[in-house]
Design a protein around this nucleic acid. Sequence first.
DNA 1: CACTGCATCAGAT
DNA 2: TGATGCAGTG
Length: 768
Amino acid sequence: MGISGLLPLLKSIQKPTELKKFKGETLGVDGYGWLHRGAISCAIELAEGKPTRKYVYYVMNRVRMMQHFGVNPYIVFDGDFLPSKAGEEASRAKRREESKASGLALLKAGKPSLAHRELQKAIDITPEMARAVIEELKKVDVPYIVAPYEADPQLVYLERQGIINGILSEDSDLLVFGAKRLITKLDQHGACVEINRRDFGACREITLTGWSDEQFRHMAILHGCDYLGGIKALGLKTAYRMLRKHKTPEKVVKMLQFDGKYRIPPDYLQLFHQAELTFLYQRVYCPKAKALVFFTPPSSDIDTSAMPFIGGPVEPEMARRIADGCVNPMTKAEIVVAVQSPDARKRRASSIVGPRPQAPRLGSQTRPAPQPPAKPIDSYFNGHSRIPLGNMDTNCFSTDTQRTASLTNNGQRPIVFPLPRPYIEDEALPPSQLPRPYTNQPVNSRSQVLRRRTEPISNLLLNDGATLGSTSRRETVNIGRVAEGQPSTRLTATARPPKKTRLCDDAEAGDDKERSKFFPAPKKEAKRRNSYLMSDDSVEEAMKELPDIDSWHSAKSDKGIMVFKESSDKDNRAISKDDEKDMRNTASAPITGKLPSATPLRSAISRFTFNQSQQSSRPTPASTASASSTDSTPMSSMTSSTMPSTNRSTPATPLMTPLQRIGSQALNRAKGPATPSFTAPRQVKRSSKGRKSLDNLPVNASFVPLPPVDLEEVESLHQTGGSEDMIIPDSENEEADNDLVGQENMGKVAGRRTVDLSRFLYLDIFAQ
DNA sequence: CACTGCATCAGAT
DNA sequence: TGATGCAGTG
């Protein structure tokens, strides 16, 4: 399922958020995921063939939850198996049978716990089960589609068509299909994680700057995906590196075969192409055309008829009936709803909405009809300690008491941990205006940080970005939340940070009538507002309104910005060719190959650091940048260390695109000393405009002048295909081109409007 | 040294 | 399921 290891690889661009952030939007939902989860709760009943509808209630509960937050669900169910997957599906079915047998045996043996565990693996989501859910969806007028084949491309198709605004799924395949906005890890409280395709350039685990969807797809296939097994000992990073180096899958495969280190089937390349074609051209249902269409419109030179593996065509009439859920997408047979009057069944095709004489009966030939409860579905929520979402405490979703309390230190601390998104910045507040220290973690507690070289984002969050220097090679200047004069506070705090971060407290959401008990102090409300990211705040909107460089500066000058400067020895560190090989240093390329000249890091850094004296004066990165820039990485850090540093001005580097800059930052940081020294944050005036949940946060100077990153830029970058980290001799030219493109964009973009940057706290995600 | 892959464990569902 | 630890490998 999905691309194992892909999400961890994209950890740095996963943005913790809350469902209510998508209020008013329509999110496509992978129905299988929910069905499967619901089925787990009744795995035993399903295995025994007993009537059950628990899984329906589970799905409907999630639907209600989305609606509770004002989000419109659009459920998409899987259809028929793709020929590409037929083999695997057969083996899966076999495993399910085995699990079922052993599970039932355990059950008889009087080991229900073990049996349930085993039977979970035997769960098979059938069209009839989906149909049962569909019947409920119709009642509440929730749109849905049964995909002709896979739900993943169907969801992405809907997203491309603008029918949905994002995709809620746990399947990382969505990203390979090209999903623009993936929301995952939704929990029962509405917390979730957002992954935006446009953020890929900010990924620090690997440098995806300039990578096209095609390259990303190649990487996924090479690593191993649903349509093609992986190569032993070839993981995502290796696939990435190989593609980086050799560009095309053909060359990569050739090199792999030449290498001899990997076992490559003789027909691997052909299978690779088939897998890619499956990703591209399998069929989906177009609700507008009411017919099947290719997921990607094939160009004239594409002969889809020669691709049996993408699944065969389906007549529009049949496709529509499949999409409606009337017909089994596999057998093409009418799905019989048990105990349903023929009258009712006919109506369902034509009228999706409307009262039903009685609850539709579940079941079909394949599965015994479950005993349908005569009571309304709500009754199930009321029962066993379940409460209808609509009746639940308004705070229940937004604020997990324990989690939030610990996370926020009982409301004493802001909870937003946005990832670096250079293009969304706006303003920041001076540290002095911070209501309270951002983190509870002792500044110097590095024990846990040192444990692992690769710092999980969660740890970063826990440490509130205080992970600088967690590794010997790491030298990070983090944007710190530590305000001047407040270091002690930070040190003394003891609360242990939660694993998941929350966007904000509900009290501010506006839709809550009551203030969360965890954020009781009305008095502090105003202050808190400044330091919180409102769930209502739309990052996307902010992104759309990317500030141009000029506006940035002006805004910045007015507002307080606290920047940590790193006084490091990393300056002395020359960038070496070795970096190319270092995967962790994702952005060495720009420095070595792209930039006209590599200046010492220190000088480069200095330009990115705000000088205290310059607080009020606006730094003009754009203007200064053009002339010099080699970029390297300016970094401000969130480190907890509050050592005052020399203040420097922070001009931005204009020559690099934001994405490139990020990459280079990562590089620098990786080279940092184990114990970097930091300069003290400085504060600037704070502006009054906009919401500044994070105004108080120091801003990473390097992010300041960034132009908006958008598809346009991505596209332009794609053309060159340059990568920053592994420099390949023959690719340098291309990369240079990229830089130029980036500059152009920056210039063009400048002049728009300012965005409230303060709402986003930047983590030192590059620490690794 | 970095990557892969496996085993284990804790937390969440 | 994700995080973590460990071992094998080149």
